[in-house]
Amino acid sequence: MTTSETRRSLREQPAASGAPAPALSPVGRPSRRGPGRAIGDLLLWIAAAGGVICIVLVVLAFTAQITLIMFRTGSMSPTIPAGSVSIVQRIPAGEIEIGDVVTVDRPGELPVTHRVTSIEPGASAQERVITMRGDANASEDPFPYTVTSVRIVLFSVPGIALLVAGMGSPIVLGGLTLAATALVVWAFWPRSGGGSRRRRAGGVI
């Protein structure tokens, strides 16, 4: 009997005798993941990305004076339609230029965001007197604004104001917190040891 025949007979012996074939080690094989696990991983990545975005926004707010504003009216349409969210950055009044879209804070009133149409020196070196007009308005605002700083619009994203406003609701924040907690617990919850028992039964230690 040749060596190759001996090896073949040894390989065929367990099948012929009805004994279970030795289990193969799972090392090196790609793990099989069900659709539930894949969806859970995707949701974890989305939650992580959302957390990173929130952290970045907080850092920018403190370091670069960058914040968000929402447009409830269409006075800046079609450039910035109602329901848009804009990224704004606070700048000194001396950096304002004609044509800039800026937000002016008004004590006791809502801020106004319009386009600058004229700039005049103020009572001090830091002050400027500006006039503004909304792109959708036929005339300038009824009075000028004396400012030492404004928030200039860097860019806008239309149609997400309601979403951003909803994210600030206590009910929504509470629901998101509970959902994120449940997702993290599910992701790190110990899995069943059935796989280990099967491997031990098959002869793998």
Rank of each mutant, 00 (worst) to 15 (best):
73 T>R: 08
53 I>Y: 09
111 P>K: 14
104 V>H: 08
78 P>S: 14
54 C>K: 11
29 R>D: 10
136 A>L: 08
86 S>C: 14
122 G>W: 01
24 L>T: 14
58 V>I: 14
62 F>K: 15
56 V>R: 02
89 Q>L: 04
33 R>Y: 08
90 R>D: 02
38 A>M: 11
76 M>V: 05
80 I>L: 05
63 T>I: 09
27 V>E: 14
143 F>K: 10
55 I>A: 15
122 G>A: 08
73 T>C: 03
74 G>D: 10
95 E>Y: 10
134 G>N: 03
97 E>C: 02
104 V>R: 05
92 P>G: 12
42 L>Y: 05
33 R>K: 09
94 G>E: 01
142 P>G: 04
99 G>R: 00
141 D>K: 01
119 I>K: 00
37 R>I: 07
140 E>I: 06
110 L>I: 07
136 A>R: 11
55 I>Y: 13
134 G>V: 02
107 P>G: 11
122 G>T: 12
98 I>L: 03
68 L>C: 08
78 P>M: 06
45 W>N: 07
41 D>P: 00
89 Q>E: 12
89 Q>M: 07
86 S>I: 00
85 V>N: 09
44 L>K: 06
125 A>I: 00
116 V>C: 05
79 T>F: 13
83 G>P: 15
82 A>S: 15
64 A>S: 13
46 I>C: 11
107 P>A: 15
85 V>D: 08
76 M>D: 02
62 F>R: 15
111 P>Q: 11
